[in-house]
Design a protein around this nucleic acid. Structure first.
Lengths: 219, 219
DNA sequence: CGCGCTGCTGAACCCTTGCTGAACCGGGTG
DNA sequence: CACCCGGTTCAGCAAGGGTTCAGCAGCGCG
């Protein structure tokens, strides 16, 4: 579990770091609001501990900015003030929990666990074309309830075709998207992989359109 | 929004009812733990306000029972005691938030809003995948009733995989979340730890997907 | 009818990826 | 101080699978 601590007071920051690390979290610390915002935005944390009083950018602003940018990482606010209005404002700004200093580590840890437990987890979507099903998150594919045994490349190619099922996709496009677009090897590789897919899921799914490309569709 | 208030003191119960109704909630009140449990189980509430001290069945028990029965309605615990241990226990039992009396209505309302916004997430506090169970709070794991002896790192990795069970996780992702992302050592460390987990919990749980990552699933 | 181009296909090659045992290191503990 | 435990590094090994290649098939057009 990755946690970000945004806290300007060095002693508290290091205390939090070691405490959380002892609990098995991988911890990053930001000492300013600007750093914290940047880190939270760029890295996928599982939870953020955010001090309200910070130099440069305060906690409210960080929280609001993240939510506006559709970053839904659970946030726990931390502050010296205990005014109700702050608490209300924090929660309404998009924080998920709130703790006033001084606080006990046990409570902090328990609250973090509760947050991570609820954490932002989107259900993986399931792609389907006729009897063919594909779960991109699990990297699995099935044909009529029987799981297909595919290599990484084969599955990437299949996923690409399934996402564009019914459409014609040129070999050039496939090469650029499934392989690196800096790929400078033999373009014949696409044909080879189309062949492998056909042997594994039957000839009827992928049709060749001479001079144009391939189309995956329900037979 | 439908809210259930489980509170045995009549004056507080009616106060909560009118306060919540003024905020636009449709409120049901249960005066005993038994009634509260039954109502919460049968009706689909959006949030439950639960007093800890109750006749018959106490708040902890209601909370634990509901979670065991896979009812994930957000629960806010309410109590006169302010002991940290109670708070920790409440959260680990499966409550989502906690408030000590006396409290301000504004804070209660704001916290409820935050809970409802998060919605019912299917996040048990005891993780389970087939015969494998893991308690993040106790930092323990079991395989078929026998406790596994795991180091801190091993448990962190296992927890990470269990939380994403069924999905493929890349070595890169593992490295960033289980280790610090500032970690600049040998990425081979992931393979080493996967190996150690496999020897401890059997080969059948974790499958390697060459070029993609690892997937933990029930065998 | 025949030539050429596009796509098909089986097999060989070889590099990357992952596996694994063991050594090393550092902090905490008796 | 010596020991132990857990985390990390390392190097050799195995094989999976990505890539290349060469020959073949078939369609289309002159």
């Amino acid at each position: 579990m990755r946690a970000l601590v945004v806290e300007d007071e060095p002693r508290l920051a290091t205390g939090l770091r070691s405490g959380l690390e002892a609990e098995g979290y991988a911890v990053d610390v930001a000492l300013t609001g600007t750093d914290g915002l940047w880190l939270a935005r760029e890295h996928g944390y599982d939870v953020v501990v955010l001090d309200l009083m910070l130099p440069e950018v305060d906690g409210f602003e960080i929280c609001a900015t993240l939510r506006a940018e559709r970053v839904w990482t659970p946030i726990l606010m931390l502050t010296a003030r205990s005014a109700d209005t702050d608490q209300v404002r924090a929660l309404d700004t998009g924080a998920d929990d709130y703790l006033t200093k001084p606080f006990s580590y046990a409570v902090l840890i328990a609250r973090l666990r509760a947050l991570v437990r609820r954490g932002a987890a989107e259900r993986p979507c399931l792609l389907q074309v006729g009897a063919l099903r594909l779960d991109p998150a699990a990297r699995k594919a099935w044909l009529d309830e029987t799981e297909l045994v595919l290599t990484a490349r084969e599955l990437s190619l299949l996923e690409f075709l399934v996402r564009r099922s019914g459409q014609v996709v040129s070999k050039r496009t496939i090469l650029e998207h499934v392989w690196d677009d800096a790929f400078d090897g033999d373009p014949n590789i696409v044909e080879v992989y189309i062949r492998r897919l056909r042997t594994k899921l039957g000839e009827q799914f992928i049709t060749t359109l001479r001079g144009a490309g391939y189309r995956l569709a329900s037979p």
